[in-house]
């Protein structure tokens, strides 16, 4: 059954708009769901409402069919992982991990075994007696994860758990967290503003904006078929070209390519923006070399007015600003969204 969120509204005193404005969401047993959205979109508020840390202005949070209204935080049996871990500085690593077991009155021997098991699972075997102040940022988050998992939460809530870490560590931890969650069969909701992180960790990704949940879908499907222009824009689609059938062609970050030199001048007007359509002339504004590829910024009119776009220029030497290049749409990097 898992988690059911029904028409939930979260409202802060003095705020003009609802932080969460009527959200419905289901998370199946053992599933990992990511909530993706810009900061201030209400994703953290929704998470805190599920945990019982924010009161609901309206709606219901149910788990395994039971309404959680009136069940206080500490009796929900959920786990929560914060951005900075929030370890208890006055307890060592082992006693931090054991905390949830102590509140559940787990016998000492079992507690010790469980702590060892979890520190092992997060790659920190033997760290029991270390003071938490001596740990690096990544180690702290691993301890926080072990602490959250120790009491076997029915649902683990992760609130931007890696935002305070540097990029390389973040990417590594995202993979590890998925492994640990899957290994423990833990149901989880993961809040983040980082697309790569959401797509790495989650089985399904929900996109939130201004308190509303716009779309929930598996990563591949979300990317291939954004439900709306807003979702596509948030995912990084850079231009929207009207199509003959009334929909919009969304041009993704890799949806535009500079034609190799000597491939000929663009043809006639044709159907603008149709994948495979003849190339269009574009004027180069600048170029950058990122992640092993040349990306050029161009100004071009794909059929929705002249605007700045980024095109991949594989096999093309970076052209000087002001020169004209031919650009074509790559169907693999584009999607169709309703207008």
């Amino acid at each position: 059954m898992g988690l059911e969120v029904r028409d939930v509204v979260v409202r802060y005193a003095g705020a003009t708009a609802d932080a969460v404005a009527g959200v419905d969401l289901d998370v199946a047993d053992g599933e990992i769901l990511a909530l993706l959205g810009p900061s201030g979109c209400g994703k953290s508020s929704l998470l805190r409402a599920v945990a019982g840390l924010e009161p609901l202005a309206r709606g219901q949070v149910r788990y395994d069919g039971a309404d959680l209204a009136g069940v206080p935080v500490h009796r929900r049996g959920f786990g929560l992982l914060f951005q900075e871990g929030q370890l208890f500085a006055h307890r060592d690593v082992g006693r931090n991990v054991a905390y949830g077991l102590e509140t559940a009155r787990v016998p000492r021997a079992e507690r010790t075994a469980r702590v060892r098991e979890l520190l092992d699972a997060v790659g920190l075997a033997g760290y029991e007696r270390r003071p938490v102040t001596t740990l690096s940022g990544g180690e702290r988050q691993r301890v926080a994860l072990a602490r959250a998992l120790a009491p076997r939460p029915r649902l683990l809530l992760l609130d931007e758990p890696f935002s305070a870490l540097d990029r390389g560590l973040r990417e590594r931890l995202a993979v590890e967290v998925r492994e640990v969650l899957k290994a423990t069969g833990t149901t989880a909701v993961f809040v983040t503003h980082d697309h790569d992180e959401a797509f790495t960790v989650a089985d399904r990704v929900g996109v939130m904006q201004a308190g509303r949940l716009l779309q929930v879908a598996p990563p591949e499907e979300l990317w291939r078929r954004p439900a709306s222009r807003a979702v596509a824009r948030f995912l990084g689609y850079q231009a929207f070209v009207p199509r003959a059938d009334g929909g919009l062609l969304a041009v993704g970050p890799t949806g535009l390519r500079a034609a190799p030199e000597g491939s000929g001048a663009p043809g006639g007007p044709g159907e603008p923006g149709e994948p495979g359509a003849p190339a269009t002339w574009a004027e180069v504004v600048g170029s950058a070399f990122r992640r092993g590829r040349t990306e050029i910024t161009v100004e071009a009119d794909l059929g929705s007015g002249r605007r700045r776009l980024v095109a991949l220029a594989d096999g093309v030497s970076a052209p000087a600003p002001g020169t004209k290049v031919a650009v074509t749409l790559d169907p693999a990097g584009c999607a169709v969204v309703p207008d």
Partner: peptide, 18 residues
């Protein structure tokens, strides 16, 4: 289940207490 090479963690989810 087994997390790759790191030993397993059993899971028996907590339940909510009224």
């Amino acid at each position: 289940l087994t997390a790759q090479g790191r030993g397993a963690v059993a899971s028996a989810p907590r339940s909510a207490a009224p």
